[in-house]
């Protein structure tokens, strides 16, 4: 698919990338020890850390991936959104406190200090790499898909560019820059999500769908006579066909020469106008 690059989008993207690289460079100069590299020297404010965590969770995988999965896979996609949160519960209740007590930077270090086993070290390393890889795939797919229409560059170039920038930032400056970059991202996502929500809700909780300039068609109801037959109250209209499908009774009425299909509601003793197509899809 060919996209036209949008100059403002490129300018904002370049500004954001430069700013992030500047933060990275600034904190890289200050990260001299393992403590400052792995845990930001323990000096990051809890509020910044909190929004950075939110930024982590509002990632391309969860923000775009879950929405996409719900739209494509429906209910099965919805189940994944709950699963994301269950992972957070494990980190909070089971991992956080013992990790803090052991005073280690990584999960592998914590396991190693407890069990001192080469096998566990190896397994922790392998599982970290495997999990990271499968976590990075949707992230990079998300990044590539987003950059493609934004900058008008091919998908592979988007993945390569975003991947290189992220690896460069994390590898050179450690946790401080990563935290501040995530804080920036989390903050922007929260602000713009709120703006979008307000803009959408401005039209009310429920709106009528519109298709370009075509106005929304209000579906009508037709009253029937009190007899138990399909007899219309409005004598100017006549039913031309009746279909009995499993649990549905459908009727065809021509109004002003135009074909309309109605569903019979036995409970309410009325006809409800329905949406219908005149040709079947290929499948």
């Amino acid at each position: 698919m060919n996209y036209q690059p949008f100059p403002w989008a490129i300018a904002i993207f370049l500004f954001f990338v430069s700013f992030v690289l500047f933060i990275s460079y600034y904190f890289a100069k200050r990260a001299k020890t393992a403590k400052s590299y792995f845990s930001a020297g323990g000096n990051v404010h809890w509020a910044v850390n909190g929004i950075a965590f939110a930024g982590d969770y509002l990632s391309a995988a969860s923000f775009l991936g879950i929405c996409g999965m719900i739209s494509i896979a429906g209910y099965d996609g919805f189940l994944y959104s709950i699963g994301y949160l269950a992972g957070w519960i494990v980190a909070l209740f089971v991992v956080a406190e013992p990790m803090k007590r052991l005073g280690k930077y990584t999960f592998a270090d914590a396991l190693d200090s407890k069990f001192n086993s080469k096998g566990i070290q190896l397994f922790a390393g392998i599982s970290t790499l495997v999990v990271s890889m499968f976590y990075l795939i949707p992230q990079m797919v998300g990044a590539g898909t987003l950059v493609e229409p934004l900058l008008g560059i091919p998908y592979w170039a988007g993945v390569l560019m975003v991947g290189t920038i992220v690896i460069f930032i994390v590898a050179t400056a450690g946790m401080t820059s990563t935290t501040y970059v995530q804080f920036l991202k989390g903050g922007l996502l929260i602000i713009f999500s709120v703006v979008l929500t307000v803009l959408i809700l401005k039209h009310g909780i429920s709106t009528t769908p519109q298709n370009g300039d075509t106005p929304y068609h209000e579906f009508q109801e037709l009253k029937l006579t009190d007899n138990d037959t399909l007899e219309l109250d409005d004598s100017s209209l006549t039913i031309s066909n009746v279909w009995e499908l499993e649990k549905l009774t459908l009727v065809r009425i021509y109004i002003g020469g135009e074909e309309t299909i109605w569903q019979y509601s036995e409970e309410e003793n009325i006809l409800k106008e329905t949406l219908f197509i005149t040709s079947l899809s290929d499948c």
């Binding site: 393992a34 792995f38 005073g103 280690k104």
Partner: peptide, 8 residues
């Protein structure tokens, strides 16, 4: 890189 204690 030596992985010492993360926090004191």
């Amino acid at each position: 890189m030596g992985h010492g204690p993360s926090t004191k």
